[in-house]
Design a protein around this nucleic acid. Sequence first.
DNA 1: GCCGGCCATCGGAAAAATCGATCAAAATAT
DNA 2: ATATTTTGATCGATTTTTCCGATGGCCGGC
Lengths: 299, 299
Amino acid sequence: MAGQPTIKQLKYLCALADQRHFGRAAQACHVSQSALSAAILELEQLLDSALIERNNKGVLMTPAGEEVVARAKRLLTDFDDLVSASHSMNAPFTGNLRLGVIPTIAPFILPGLLKLLRKEHPQFKLFIREDLSHNLVQLLHKGELDLLLLALPYKADNVISQELFNDPLLLAFRPGDPVSSLEKLKASHIKGRQVLLLEEGHCLRDHAMESCKLGNSDISIPYQATSLNTVVQMVANDIGITLLPEMAAKSSLIDSSQIKTRAFDQTGIERKIGLMWRKKSPLSSQFKMLGEYIQQHCH
Amino acid sequence: MAGQPTIKQLKYLCALADQRHFGRAAQACHVSQSALSAAILELEQLLDSALIERNNKGVLMTPAGEEVVARAKRLLTDFDDLVSASHSMNAPFTGNLRLGVIPTIAPFILPGLLKLLRKEHPQFKLFIREDLSHNLVQLLHKGELDLLLLALPYKADNVISQELFNDPLLLAFRPGDPVSSLEKLKASHIKGRQVLLLEEGHCLRDHAMESCKLGNSDISIPYQATSLNTVVQMVANDIGITLLPEMAAKSSLIDSSQIKTRAFDQTGIERKIGLMWRKKSPLSSQFKMLGEYIQQHCH
DNA sequence: GCCGGCCATCGGAAAAATCGATCAAAATAT
DNA sequence: ATATTTTGATCGATTTTTCCGATGGCCGGC
C-alpha cells in the first residue's frame, strides 16, 4: 500500500516545470538539488508515470508531466487560497455566524442591526434562526447555532451569558383606561386586571410575571397569541391590558393601533437583553465584541 | 517563517468533521488519537484560526472550521483526481502526444490514421505539426514535439529511429510518355529527362536523388512547387516527369489528373517511413507500440 | 464529590527528509 | 580522440519530523 504525493512534491514539480533544471528549481525551492531530485523521483513512482525527461542539458516535460503540472498548479492555487482565506477568517465581524434570536426581540433589533452590519461589515454573514429560548438553547448545544440573542436571565448549563442592556416592560392599555389617571404606576395596580400574555414558552411571559409578581391565575392567555402583534390587537379591542417590552413599544408595532404605553414608577420591571454562547466556544472574544457592538448601536 | 499545512492534516480535519470525535476520526485515518490531535492542533496554529470546539462529549466545528472543511474536501477531491488521472496517463494510446509529420507523408497517412485512432482510442489526443524534417527535428529537440513521423534515413543526433515500412518511389509521367513502352524500367532511364522535384529541404527530393543516383544538374526545381500536388499538376502539363511515393500515387492526389505511375524494375528505389524520438525519452515503449500500430493499419 | 469519557501532552522510538559529497552519463570544447 | 563541464542520481550521515503508547488534566454527568 503506497502512500500519496505531498504538497511539497507538487510544488517541486511545478518549480521544475518552470525552471527546466533540477539545480535551479532546487534553488527556487530553497532545498538541495538532491532533495528535489529524490522528491521528483518519488512523485513519479507514486503516480506511476514518467513526468520528466532527463537530459544532460536540463529537463523536458512529458505530455503527462505537463498535464500533471497544470493540475498541480490549479491545486496549489486552491491550496493557497484556502490558507489565506482561513487567515482572515478568525477576525471579528467576518465569516459566517449562526445566530438564534427569540421572537420578542427579533423584529425590533434585527432590522436595524442587520442593515448596519451589512453596511459596516459586508463580509460578515449572519444566519438567523428565530425560535423560543428553549429551542434555541437546544440548538446551541447541538452546535447548530453559535450564538443566541435573547432575554436574560435564562437558566442554561455550560453557557456564558453577557447582558447588553435593560429592556423595561411597559404597561400597554387602551386610551381612557383607568391606569391613565394614576399618579404613580405600580405593579400592584394591574392585579385583578385581565392581563394578556403570550403563550407558554415565550420567556417574555415569564419575565413579565416575575417582574410584576403575577400568578398564573392573574393572567389570561389570548387564544393563539403567538406574536406581540396579536396581543396588541387584542388590547386595542379592549379585551385586556398587557406588558410590552420597551423595544416593542418604540417600534412601529403599536403605531397603527390606538393603544398607549406607560412605564412603571418602580424599578425592576424589565427584562435584560443579552447574548449567550457555549462556555467552551473558542469564539468568546468575538462574541463579546459583537455584544459591545450591539450595545452601542441598538440602544 | 511558518510552514504550510499538509494534505494529511486536511484529511484528518475532514475525518474529524465527519466523526466529530478525535478517537473515531483517528481510527478512520488509521493513526493514533495523539497523532491526529497533534495534527489538528498544528493545523489550527498554521491557519491561525479556531476550527474546532473541544468538548468533553466530542467536538463541534466552528463556522471557520466548516468553511475550511468544505474547501478542504473540494481540494482533496481534486487531489485524488490528479492522482488517479496520472495513473491512467502512462498507458499507451492515452493522453496527449505532439506529433510532427513531414508534408510528403501527412496527407496520405494522417486522415486514415487519425480516423482510426479516434475510433479505437478516443482518449488519445494527437497534436499534429506539419513541417520539413529539419524543422521537426529541431522542435523535437526543443521538446515542443514528442515524436516524428518522417522518411528515413534521416541523420539526427540523440534520437532513436524506428523504420515502419518501405514506400517505393514510382515514376510518374504523362500517358504516352516513352517510358510507357519500356519493358523494364530502370533508374538510368530517367537520366537526361526533365525531372521535377520539390524544392530544397524536402527530404523526398533527397531520397529521390539518392535512389536514382541523380545529380543536381539532372533535375529541375519547379517554380514554387512546395507540394506534391503542384508537381503532379506540372507533370500533367507535360513539363517533365517526377518520382512519386507509392502512398501518394495510391491516394486521390493523381486521380483527377491524367498522369500514370510505374514502379521501377529495380530494388532500392524507395524511401522508408519511420518514427523518430529523442533517445532519452521515457516514452520509448509507447512510441514503439504506436509504431507497430501504424505498421499494421497504414500499410 | 467521585467517575468516566475526552482531548492534550509527554518521552522515546521509528521513519523520513535533507544535506554535502560523490558518481555516472553525456554533450561540448580542446 | 580526449578532456572538461554540466547534468541528474546516488550515497551516507545527520537532523528533523512523525508516530505511538502512556499519562495527565479537564469537564460534565451521576
